[in-house]
């Protein structure tokens, strides 16, 4: 049996399919992007008030995409930490990207290296969340790519625009409550990562040590506190694991 396929019709259907996938990506990320507006405003304002050279703080929204890494970089740079320490702390706080990247590689296996770098750049927690959810039911690689690209670019442009607004307002006269917003956002990010006793222990030990060692030169105390917190989490997790019977729960 022979089937007639009109190339023009196929091209139109293909374009519509890609457009639908892109629209689905934008729709999927929109609620998450909206929810991030207060955070983006605060990050922008923090960048403006950190005393960095003009526009560097806002440029960090474009290149160092992601609230945790960006705030870490801003705070460490603001405190005058050496370059290696700033980059090292940003690396540590962004370690979760390694897991996201590892989880996404099976979806990116058939793509070009250029695509993988671009997709990696757009990979942040909300994009990872909507993409992995979508990819469970979407098996067409082209539609997957358009979905991912639309979701990633929507969030990135929203982040860039809203942090820009925050950056513009950050230069307004100083109020103590505005200066408190940034530490509260960082605290919220830390508490959001607390899932069990081990992660709570990691956070409590790290924050306590950072307070004690906040006068150390070059902000070494903060990084040392973070590393000690990670070690504490590992130890507590190991102790809890050896004491408790295996539950069979897989880590997300």
């Amino acid at each position: 049996m022979q089937t007639d396929t009109d190339p023009a019709t196929t091209a139109i259907e293909s374009a519509e399919s890609r457009r639908d996938a892109a629209l689905a990506g934008t729709r999927a990320i929109a609620p998450l992007a909206t929810g991030l507006i207060p955070l983006a405003l605060t990050v922008g304002a923090t960048a403006a008030r950190a005393g960095l050279p003009p526009l560097v703080g806002w440029a960090s929204s474009a290149t160092l995409y992601g609230a945790s890494g960006q705030l870490t970089w801003i705070q460490m740079t603001h405190s005058g930490a050496p370059a290696a320490l700033v980059v090292g702390a940003t690396l540590l706080v962004n370690m979760q990207m390694l897991l996201y990247g590892a989880a996404m590689r099976r979806y990116w296996a058939s793509t070009s290296r250029r695509w993988r770098v671009a997709a990696g750049f757009l990979l942040v927690s909300p994009v990872f969340a909507v993409a992995t959810e979508r990819f469970r039911t979407e098996h067409d690689p082209v539609r997957r790519r358009w979905f991912y690209l639309a979701a990633g670019l929507t969030l990135w442009t929203t982040w860039l625009a809203v942090t820009g607004i925050g950056y513009a307002f950050g230069g307004l006269p100083s109020l103590p409550v505005l200066a408190t917003l940034s530490p509260l956002v960082i605290l919220s990010l830390a508490l959001r990562a607390v899932r069990d006793t081990a992660t709570l222990a990691a956070m409590v030990v790290a924050s306590t040590l950072a307070i004690v060692g906040r006068c150390t030169p070059y902000d070494i105390g903060t990084v040392a506190a973070g590393i000690t917190g990670i070690a504490t989490g590992l130890v507590v997790s190991r102790v809890a694991h050896t004491e408790a019977p295996p539950s069979g729960n897989a880590e997300p």
Partner: peptide, 9 residues
Amino acid sequence: RFAAPALMG
């Protein structure tokens, strides 16, 4: 697992 709570903390 502990990088985010520790460093951000």
